[in-house]
């Protein structure tokens, strides 16, 4: 039984489940490090998922779909930035509005363009890596290694590169230092000549791009279709991963992997134990609440997180 659950396939599926959560969570890291709460990640993932499928089916090119998803994410990020940074509106309200907007507009266009509630992906991205030897041919060990490390969608490798870059940018460059200072103590950063507004706009739009990319992975690579509300609360689980990862890229990646393992485990246990499938479906959400509670007292958000910047105080 143990071997049935914990095998190479299990590792691979954990990683696949973790990718969208990690990408969206990283979006949350960028946004909140600059001082803007982004509840709209959920809607950005959903819009990205729809755009990826729609553009792929129209152009027959999944890479164009991925690019479209990123652009739509940036656009929604821009809307969030305008409402929260320029107009200083309540950031949670703006995020909620983006989620409502995304739920409506995706189904709206689904009907308008395809006349259906569910659209299948016509072409997927190629699998990159070593060719998979068929079972029985060659050693099982070599096969397992390939399954675990070298047989994925290009977006999986891209995600790993993005995370390394994000870590370097945030913690090893002057730009990253400025971004973090804007989220911790914007008045001081402003005195040092950092353009608060510009930094926050860039951060929020980056978070939109990452959430859009997460959405494209979800629809193009995981589900191979788009259906309404398919983001399934992942934007919020990603926020939980971000908090558990203490607002750092590597921590967020680790927390996302934890969710990946949890979900993959639940899916596998379903076949072994007689648990109703509905309870299996609850696992990621229960895990998110559990993770949040256990992060209490350990994880401190950036000091200026959620506070609009006012130049003159008083």
């Amino acid at each position: 039984m143990f071997g049935d659950i914990f095998n190479a396939q299990f590792v691979a599926s954990s990683i696949r489940v973790a990718i969208p959560l990690a990408l969206a969570g990283l979006g949350g890291v960028f946004s909140e490090r600059s001082g803007v709460i982004n509840i709209g990640l959920e809607g950005m993932i959903l819009s990205g998922a729809f755009t990826a499928v729609a553009v792929t089916n129209f152009t027959q090119n999944p890479w164009a779909g991925v690019l479209g998803a990123i652009l739509v994410g940036i656009l929604l990020g821009l809307i969030h930035a305008v409402t929260c940074i320029t107009f200083k509106a309540n950031q949670i309200v703006s995020g909620v509005a983006i989620n409502l907007f995304a739920s409506g507009i995706t189904v709206f266009f689904c009907w308008l363009l395809f006349n259906e509630t569910q659209i299948m992906v016509k072409t997927s991205l190629p699998i990159w890596g070593l060719p998979l030897p068929s079972i029985g041919e060659g050693s099982t060990f070599a096969r397992n290694i390939i399954v675990m490390f070298a047989h994925y969608s290009p977006l999986v490798y891209l995600t790993i590169i993005i995370f390394i870059l994000a870590h370097l940018i945030l913690f090893k460059t002057p730009f990253g230092l400025r971004l973090r200072s804007v989220g911790e103590y914007p008045q001081a950063a402003d005195t040092m000549g950092v353009n608060i507004i510009k930094m926050r706009y860039m951060a929020v739009m980056t978070s939109g791009a990452l959430a859009g990319l997460a959405g494209s992975f979800l629809s193009l690579e995981q589900a191979h279709f788009f259906v309404k509300e398919m983001s399934g609360g992942r934007g919020f689980i990603a926020l939980a991963a971000m908090i558990f990862g203490k607002w750092t890229p590597l921590g967020t990646a680790g927390a996302a992997l934890l969710f990946g393992v949890g979900e993959a485990l639940a899916m596998r246990l379903q076949g072994v134990l007689a648990i109703p499938v509905q309870f299996i479906h609850m696992v990621p959400y229960l895990l998110a609440i559990f993770v949040l509670v256990s992060a209490v007292g350990r994880a401190t958000p950036p000091a200026a997180d959620g506070i609009p910047y006012e130049k003159e105080i008083g």
């Binding site: 409402t83 200083k88 509106a89 309540n90 509005a97 409502l100 907007f101 409506g104 189904v107 709206f108």
Partner: peptide, 23 residues
């Protein structure tokens, strides 16, 4: 005209309410 147009309208109302409130 899909019904979801109304959902989009509702979200736009929300965004405009928060912006106009602040302004």
């Amino acid at each position: 005209i899909p019904r979801e147009l109304i959902m989009v309208l509702q979200a736009v109302i929300v965004i405009f309410v928060v912006i106009s409130d602040e302004v």
